[in-house]
Design a protein around this nucleic acid. Structure first.
Lengths: 352, 352
DNA sequence: GTCCCTCTGTACAACGATGTACAACCTCCG
DNA sequence: CGGAGGTTGTACATCGTTGTACAGAGGGAC
């Protein structure tokens, strides 16, 4: 009785009984151990198929100490930049036979801390974290020993491997571009009230450096603070900037979503982009290639970021305690309609 | 020596030795068992802190048969609809103390099959799958017994719990709206060559039913097929529709991304939306509330879909073999600028 | 003082897989 | 025919945790 498949409850033991061999022999077949007679192997394989056996990954992990699962901790999945990044990480991890578990921190310090503290027990082999709220100090205090790779922030002498973006240089390039096309009243959207937000701080510095270099004024009322980096925040910030006595003729947004919100808000007020107002974003998300107008933006190399992060983890798993590595991912400036550029490749490249 | 934290390698055994109690007592403390003296508890807790102990989730899972991890299998994370859905699922799961592992199927039958077959071993307690390529037949053949919830497709008499969307009714509503505002040459973008794509098939049927009801022509050349549901596909399809001898004055796109691509393409051709061409999408992704013009769209209740899916799984984990349940999630039609509606709440609601 | 009961804590087995040690068997060679 | 050497398969311990069974300590009622 019960010769059929009792679901995926079958364990090595059941398969072994059915094939009339020992548990270890089944294990050997499953793992492709060489010295198993063809006939034994066939008998075992048949039992496996009949019982629909699947190895229990928890048991395997307990025994071997590895799960081949890594965690990717991101602020928000529905920020397109992070969704696109997640996709790249998943793809790179897959090539290594790893599964990716995604943790959403919502950019909250508390939840980033939980992830760092090893909330996942030893379920994961490694962690890729994109910290928003935590700074170098908190990272230094970390006691958990799960291999860690940091994304995005520039943490000097950090305790972990780190894929950085040169925020200052890129922000300077974005601002310099607005200077180059003749704008003189250049605003910024994306400064943050929290002191710990290093990203915002560095981008703001790059913006200020570029203005200084060009000999242009840097008025405080042209720097708009936001709570989050969503479209709504960009739109609200744009609204405030338009109320300033001498409104800007260009705006550098610290990410594309805010830039898209700003575009929409400008449109609502009858302001033409790029004629009356030039807009530059950051992230090069797909949305910006199809918006009206298309969006000029800082384009970080997301695939490179993902692949380097995964490679860092892979290296850590082999040799534990080398000094931390750091790579700075390249960026380009994609000039599109919102700052006077051409319509650009994206919509055109989509052929039938 | 070595009184410090030897990383997260500490196990119950180490803690027990250090606190001078048995392993089980430490386990009791960790799990909040009541009958432990305050002094013992304190001693154990101190050892836990000193050693920075974290329970090994693999061992716990092996012992208890539950991992409190569920998998969410989606076509693509960087399709905003799925990113938003994933976020909701993660949130609902978190309230139950579950972690969500995301599997990207890329809409490939092969990978959907792998997920169904239990590629995750018994690492996960349940699976939420949004099938694109697989139909009812393949789902019937499933042998794995991990609790399963299906999203989106209408699989009649399916073998699993199912959160459905009434694709036909919603497509009819979208098309009827275009009829209501006086359009007569109504096109559709999103039909699929593959026969197994039930979603596309059902939405197409709703579109055709609405046209028939209104006594309007349903010309084959007004139905554009696409491979994928990205912006580029929508743009390419729009381009083809504009080349038809008698081009449409309205277009119903089977998702928002294609609608956004179509919007952009129309703009490139100097066609005004909604004056010359009305556009309706599907999904109500955030992008469509900020695009120019804002996008009229079918708005499925994503939060409801996510919460019902998670509740279905929760119920399955308690009582295994009840007959499958099915819930049809509600939808609304959000009328915005792309079909002559007002600017709508979204940008306005974003206050400073 | 005895009995019983509750409170604390211990010892052991088990979850499913795999590494180690070794036993049984075969083949080949002298 | 005996022994060396390789092949094929088995038994057992182990990973870290928790459920079960039970032992000893302490308190109250008679």
């Amino acid at each position: 009785m019960d010769t059929g498949a009792p679901g995926s409850r079958a364990s090595l033991k059941h398969v072994a009984e059915r094939a009339g061999v020992s548990v270890k022999t089944v294990s050997n077949v499953v793992n492709g151990y060489l010295h198993v007679t063809a006939s034994t192997r066939a008998r075992v394989q048949q039992a496996i198929d009949e019982l629909n056996y699947r190895p229990n990954l928890a048991a395997r992990q307990l025994r071997q100490g590895r799960s081949d699962v890594i965690a990717l901790a991101l602020p928000e999945l529905d920020l397109p930049y992070f969704a696109e990044l997640a996709r790249s990480v998943i793809k790179c991890a897959e090539e290594k036979g790893w599964t990716v578990l995604i943790d959403q921190t919502d950019g909250l310090a508390e939840r980033e801390q939980l992830v760092l503290d090893g909330i996942r027990g030893r379920l994961i082999d490694g962690l890729i974290l994109s910290p928003i709220a935590l700074g170098a100090a908190e990272l230094e205090r970390r006691r958990d020993t799960t291999p860690l790779v940091l994304l995005g922030e520039r943490v000097f002498d950090g305790p972990a491997d780190h894929v950085a973006i040169d925020n200052v240089a890129a922000a300077r390039a974005a601002t310099a571009h607005l200077v180059d096309i003749g704008r003189t009243r250049i605003a910024a959207i994306g400064a943050q009230p929290r002191p710990s937000s290093e990203t915002a701080h560095l981008r703001l510095r790059g913006y200020q450096e570029a203005l200084a270099e060009a000999g242009l004024p840097a008025r405080p009322e042209w720097v708009a603070e936001v709570d989050q980096y969503h479209r709504a925040d960009g739109a609200a910030a744009m609204r405030r900037l338009l109320d300033v006595p001498e409104p800007p003729d260009a705006v550098f947004c610290f990410n594309d979503l805010m830039a898209l919100g700003a575009l929409r808000e400008a449109h609502n007020h009858g302001i033409r982009v790029p004629e009356d107002l030039a807009v530059v974003g950051w992230d090069d998300i797909e949305d910006g290639r199809y918006s009206t107008p298309t969006l000029t933006t800082i384009s970080p190399d997301k695939q490179k970021i993902a692949s380097v992060a995964v490679e860092f983890l892979a290296a850590r798993l082999v040799s534990g305690s080398e000094p931390p590595h750091e790579v700075t991912a390249p960026f380009t400036l994609a000039v599109r309609e919102s700052s006077g550029g051409r319509r650009d490749r994206a919509p055109a490249a989509a052929s039938a």
